[in-house]
Amino acid sequence: MQPLLTPYTLGNLELKNRVVMAPMTRSRTPDTVPNALNVLYYSQRASAGLIVAESTNINNYGIGGPFTPGIFSPEQAEGWKQVTAAVHERGGKIFLQLWHAGRVAHPDNIGGEQPVAPSPIKADGKAFTAAGLKEYVTPRELSIAEIRTIIEEYRQAAVHAKLAGFDGVELHAAFGYLPNQFLSDAANQRPDEYGGSVENRTRFVLEVLDALCSVWDSQRVGIRIAPSNVYNSVLDSNPPALYGYLVEKLNALNLAYLSVMEAFVKEHPNPYFIYDVSGHFRPLYRGTLITNGGINQTRGNFLIESGQADLIAFGQLFIANPDLVSRFANEVELAVPDRSTFYGGDERGYTDYGAIKK
């Protein structure tokens, strides 16, 4: 039996295998309320041991892209309820990734408003909007009162996720979105208790996790980080020190898991850059470790067998292979996804990838 295909106990959940479907924005939810096409998409992939549903907006002013779902209204929760019911009917488990884009929420996606962030520092790069790619804008600095409001919005999103029938929630603290902006000294230059020292810069993430754990058992709450992320200009000056401190705090929370993103660059001028992310954090984190990023079946089996990771998340492989677990089991050729259909559109490149013929 391949290690990837063996069962795993995740906190107080029993997973049928160690294959995780990674959260992936697909921009197929035009009115922010999950629809029948989303239901089909996730139910097709329910053979994964765990699905982590796509980045989902916790409010209407931190939206990270057009046609993305929300979890801040009863209607959105009701839409997601159809998704979770379909996944559960096929024996799957599903968490929801909670998302606030912070400074990379373009005005076009948030009703023309100025995005908010820890500090008024513009991100490098461009945002995906309904009218195409547009330059990021300089954000407005959050007040302490506004920070507390956002933490409460995360808590309320967790309430809605529970009502929607999810098995748990994941805090998206990676890829240059708001929690990652608080963590990074490249994006956070606040002089108050949320900026400056490593202890202060991790405060927002830890307070959000406390809020999520006030709604859910801690073993139903996960977190995703990307210490070697170079997108959206949030790479910290000293990732080992920052994330080492954060992981030490996470150990005390008894979370469902820590999900890490592997590095996508082979060389970087930062002398503290972490190239082998799961290898670095495996000795530091005492709970379940998920890794993701450019991993194939062979590598995934090795990482589990060697103890470097407990679960392996696959992203693009799940786009074109809804029956990825079956393909792994039968060791058959994998379909290749059409990149032109990754974001937006209809069923093409979303729900029309077929299963292997028996």
Rank of each mutant, 00 (worst) to 15 (best):
A226Q: 03
Y285F: 06
K249P: 10
L178I: 14
Q189D: 14
S184M: 05
R201P: 01
A173D: 06
Q219C: 13
G196M: 13
D236H: 06
N232K: 14
A164P: 12
V230E: 04
N254H: 08
A164S: 14
F175M: 08
P240I: 04
V215C: 05
N180G: 05
R220H: 15
G196E: 05
Y231K: 15
D210W: 15
D276G: 14
G195F: 09
S218F: 02
G244Y: 05
C213V: 12
L212W: 07
P239W: 00
P271Y: 06
G168T: 07
A252G: 00
A252V: 02
V260K: 07
L235H: 11
V169L: 06
N229K: 09
S214E: 06
D185H: 11
A186N: 02
P269V: 04
V221G: 01
E207C: 06
S214M: 08
L178R: 05
H280L: 06
I225M: 13
L242I: 10
G222R: 07
E170V: 09
Y194M: 15
S218I: 01
E199D: 13
E267M: 12
V205R: 00
P227T: 01
V205G: 05
N270W: 12
N238P: 13
R220S: 11
E248Y: 06
Y257P: 00
N232S: 14
P269N: 10
A263C: 08
N180F: 11
N200Q: 09
H172K: 00
S259T: 13
A263D: 10
M261D: 03
P269F: 10
Q181D: 05
D167S: 09
